[in-house]
Amino acid sequence: MEHGSSKDLTASTFSLADEDHTLANSVRFTLNQDPRVTFCGYSIPHPSDARVNIRVQTTGDPAKEVLKDALQDLMIMCQHVRSTFDNAVAEFRTSKTVEDMKIK
């Protein structure tokens, strides 16, 4: 990943290679949830280049740190969905076996 640095650290554009809407749109959403973010958007400059640019502008914190936090939040969310999903599958399996036994 590349980062366009400048004097003003509160506004940056991050360019991610080999990524697309999958990552960029969810990161953009997470960033927009953050009260420190004044503006966030992403673009895919050219459809045949596997690259996304994410623009982050903040109220004062370094944009890099805010982006890092957003990624961390998404990570925690993914972990949460994973464990909730595993629990839901296990729960479904047990309820299914109980049901099957009732039929017999």
């Binding site: 009260p35 949460h80 909730t84």
Partner: peptide
């Protein structure tokens, strides 16, 4: 620093599974 306050934790329910 860490903005967990506005984070949401999704819920999952299985309807059908094969």
């Amino acid at each position: 620093m860490d903005g967990v306050s506005y984070q949401r934790f999704p819920k999952v329910k299985i309807r059908e599974m094969k």
